[in-house]
């Protein structure tokens, strides 16, 4: 079996589990929407603040929801020792990494679509430069999913996983938060030219951490 076929199998398995258990749909997505609503309570929708800071709020909501998605992705493997099953199936560590981060990325893209619509409707944001926005969101999602999957397996099966994961992941994602927010701001302001360097930075981050994951995941996965 090729690496990509194996990765697709793992991703398909994770997405099927999410489709059946409905945790992503019934818990993580509503959580993201609640965060978006809370920002409106905090920042008073009447003063036009929300529309100005919408990109940053959107990405904070996505990052918080992504933490839940990553925790969920590895909770599934720890339960009933599903991990051993995957290991015994002889799957390549790199394929498991690509599969799991692919599944998380797919979930996040769905989440971003819904939250994006929510932000447009609730915060009264006018959409410009959709191409830049989509490319920036794709790159940021790849970076978040790769980093999350890497730290997810580092912390998987450990005590204190739920509290440790945010502390590990969020500082690493600081450049993603910064880049994605700036790219969205420039894109929405109708200045896509300013956004491209940020999009490039996001892609570099995403590719770099995907590379680290492909290299390192095997030894972390098989070890403990």
């Amino acid at each position: 079996m090729s690496l990509w076929r194996e990765a697709l199998l793992v991703a398909g398995k994770d997405l099927r589990i999410e489709a059946r258990s409905r945790v992503a749909l019934a818990q993580i997505l509503p959580f993201g929407i609640v965060v978006v609503l809370l920002f409106a309570f905090a920042l008073d929708p009447d003063r036009g603040v929300l529309a100005r800071v919408a990109p940053g709020l959107f990405w904070i909501a996505v990052l918080l929801a992504a933490l839940l998605a990553v925790g969920r992705s590895f909770a599934v493997e720890t339960q009933s020792n599903a991990r051993d099953g995957l290991r015994l199936a002889g799957l390549d560590g790199a394929a498991v990494f690509l599969g799991k981060s692919g599944a998380i990325a797919t979930e996040l893209l769905g989440l971003e679509l819904v939250l994006g619509l929510g932000v447009v409707v609730l915060y009264d944001v006018e959409v410009h430069g959709l191409g830049v926005l989509v490319l920036a969101a794709l790159a940021a999602t790849v970076g978040v999913a790769a980093t999350g999957t890497l730290y997810g397996v580092l912390a998987a099966g450990l005590r204190l996983r739920e509290t440790l994961l945010p502390l590990l992941v969020l500082p690493v994602l600081a450049p993603v938060m910064l880049g994605a927010t700036r790219a969205f701001e420039d894109g929405l302001a109708g200045a896509p030219g300013d956004a491209w360097p940020w999009v490039a930075l996001l892609w570099i981050f995403g590719v770099l951490y995907t590379g680290i994951g492909v290299l390192a995941f095997g030894s972390l996965w098989e070890n403990d």
């Binding site: 980093t147 730290y151 580092l154 500082p171 680290i212 390192a216 030894s219 070890n223 403990d224």
Partner: peptide
Amino acid sequence: KRNAIAALIA
């Protein structure tokens, strides 16, 4: 191994 990889990611 876990620690070393985490240090390098950071």
